[in-house]
Design a protein around this nucleic acid. Sequence first.
DNA 1: GTAATTGCAAAGGATTTGCAACAGT
DNA 2: ACTGTTGCAAATCCTTTGCAATTAC
Lengths: 161, 161
Amino acid sequence: MSPFIPLFRRYLREQGLPVTPQREAVADTVFESSGHLSVEDIELALRARGERIGKATVYRTMELLVRSGLVEEHDFGEGFKRYEHRFTRQPVHEHLICTTCGKVVEFQSPEVLRAQDCISLLYGFVPHRHRLEIYGTCSECQALGVASPAAGLTCPVSQLN
Amino acid sequence: MSPFIPLFRRYLREQGLPVTPQREAVADTVFESSGHLSVEDIELALRARGERIGKATVYRTMELLVRSGLVEEHDFGEGFKRYEHRFTRQPVHEHLICTTCGKVVEFQSPEVLRAQDCISLLYGFVPHRHRLEIYGTCSECQALGVASPAAGLTCPVSQLN
DNA sequence: GTAATTGCAAAGGATTTGCAACAGT
DNA sequence: ACTGTTGCAAATCCTTTGCAATTAC
């Protein structure tokens, strides 16, 4: 069992919410994994453990985990959400996403944090959070010579004029 | 009619695809607008012009516009896509998004471009595109004293330990 | 015991797809 | 003429919700 489960229990108690085996199983599955999980990933992992938990309960528990601050929600534009627990070594990080194989690499960028503060100040914004995602082709996929299917805008407007 | 319609016509001809009034109407609606449009926005604008075009056709045309490079697709995590034509003064830009009123401000950040190149080099990635979105509260909403509903993670993990 | 959760199935919203009628080249 | 588009409705995908049975406290 993940050593972080007690944090989730504490959150639930503070909120006056019941600590149920389903909630613990979902939280444990997310805490024990290191990646960026979709709800489907979580369901598969639960099934692999022999847990039989309804889809709705998984969604409802993810909402609690996000609200507790223990899990971060991501949207990489795939049409569904992904979740990542916050017990990594990198508390604030950005994502490098390979559009060929789907691999996600995390990195930290003080320059981006500085730019965020700078721009926010300039426009009078109070920043709560940001996301920086760089989409491209990772070194392995380049070596395989596979073209990226979702490279997006391939043709600059200037070339059309 | 937007002066950019000929570019879209040219793209369609190059691809051997028919130039239809529906496609032109959709493209013109997007080109004449300056914001970040949802498909619903586009449908409303078309109806306001007296055009009666099916939803499926709008979706299919947006795909062509994106592929042509004339329109950029955005996903601000609202559960649907938004589209922006590329004839603004800022070819590459980032977004500052107010989570209270939904306002979007665009800005340019050379630091972020530099960081993208730097990081990509470090990991051997070939970057195709990136997105940086800063979510926060704009100055007007701060003045109104309205709390942001979707501020996200309010409770740092460290405080839970 | 009371109030909240669970799980199923149905509903929901955005997007896609099948197909017959129609239009561009 | 031939190929591709249009528009409608149905289908699909992810997610939310209603509700009766069950469980945490």
